[in-house]
Design a protein around this nucleic acid. Structure first.
Lengths: 226, 226
DNA sequence: AGCGATGGTAAGTAAGCACTTACTTTCAAC
DNA sequence: GTTGAAAGTAAGTGCTTACTTACCATCGCT
């Protein structure tokens, strides 16, 4: 097997094991065995276990790196279709966590172990999502469509619903005993709650078919405060 | 030092270290040193490291065991004061996580390691909170104060906001760089979003009374899939 | 005084860990 | 057909780990 191939294979095996058992819970021998090679092979490709771990985290993180988290909903943003914006982001995140639960586990492990990835991910991804969403929310607040609540609070509330739901599905309630719901339905429900929760005038959303409504509703309504 | 005292002291030290570094990341030697005794002392009080870990988890978990999570807001429930119910629970949880961040870390570690505590906590605490809140929500739905959304979805959304906020504060953003907000304000903001998000009609919320309104409009079947 | 229970330790032990060394096999390029 | 590097390994090395043993010290109690 060629060098690059083997390296990648070891990386993938390590990724799986690290995400299952954490850094300290995984031995280099296990990794080697799972990859079907000797331990020495692992250390030929990665100088230390730490380096292998970093490579794993890098490999995962770089997938999230270069894409703007709001890009997938860019047209919804342009249309100022709040529902499409939030529901799209939610669905994206839920699907992502669903088909790659390893990442969430790795992230948690590294956060608990205070590995630099946790910090990096925070800086490079989380902050960006927060800022992007804030700028959108601010705009919609100026439009009079969203209440003048601190935007970051809204972002946190929304991301909280989504991440916590994923965490439940991946970590605690894998059988979905407590709540069995499709990602679609979850994204829709959470979005509904959030948007109704922060809308300036509830009537504008209450009748539910705000979906696919192309025009922005109530551009300059009177802004009532809390 | 008397036997019981020492045992408790070791337990507390272990609690701190386990929560910081996890089970595998903490050595019995470290625990002994931090407790100012020899390693043999640790093993006199706890037969194995596993047993010590279990004792730690038990000790933490039993604090949450015998109290009804909704007891603290019982009068608010009786009054059907939704705001007080949810805000009270949120504030309680946030304060709890604030003054005992160890617990959240221990819980996460044990969930990742698939330790039985994770399951126990889920069964004994989480499920109960979910069920209690559901029963309250159902009642308020019958009252016509809350939309007919699956109650567990509402619970998950609400708990999600709170837990995720705590997780942020304890794990990722301890400096509160991204969002600095008091527990009071957070509890109020999240409650506001949730209640407005699931209220049947804005008026019924606005003046705070839970007046019975006529049957709820359920737009469930109205929507067609895209 | 003596004695056993209790609180404590120094110095192990065997297994497991990350990592190394010294060696063999494979195979394409001259 | 030789060679030289790359792919691969068996068998270590030294250190750390959870856990043990064998022994000391200080009591309260007859």
């Amino acid at each position: 097997m060629a060098g690059g191939e083997r390296r990648l294979q070891i990386l993938r095996v390590a990724m799986r094991l690290f995400s299952q058992r954490g850094f300290r819970g995984t031995t280099t021998k296990e990794i080697a065995r799972a990859a079907g090679v000797s331990e020495a092979m692992v250390f030929r490709h990665f100088a230390t276990k730490e380096e292998l771990y970093s490579a794993v985290l890098d490999h995962k993180a770089c997938l999230h790196d270069d894409l703007d988290p709001l890009q997938r909903v860019a047209d919804a943003i342009a249309r100022k279709d709040d529902r499409a914006v939030f529901e799209g982001m939610a669905l994206d995140a839920l699907n992502q966590h669903d088909c790659d639960p390893e990442f969430q586990r790795l992230l948690l492990h590294s956060a608990l172990e205070q590995h630099e990835l946790a910090h990096m991910f925070w800086e490079k991804f989380v902050r960006r999502v927060y800022r992007s969403l804030r700028s959108y929310i601010r705009q919609r607040q100026r439009d009079g469509a969203i209440k003048h609540v601190e935007p970051f609070v809204i972002v946190r509330a929304f991301i909280g619903m989504i991440i916590h739901h994923s965490l439940n599905n991946n970590l605690w309630d894998r059988e979905r005993q407590l709540l069995k719901i499709s990602n679609q339905a979850a994204a829709r429900a959470f979005t509904e709650i959030l948007l109704n929760g922060v809308a300036t005038s509830p009537q504008s959303r209450a009748n539910g078919d705000g979906r696919q409504r192309s025009r922005v509703e109530t551009p300059k309504r009177k802004r009532s405060k809390k």
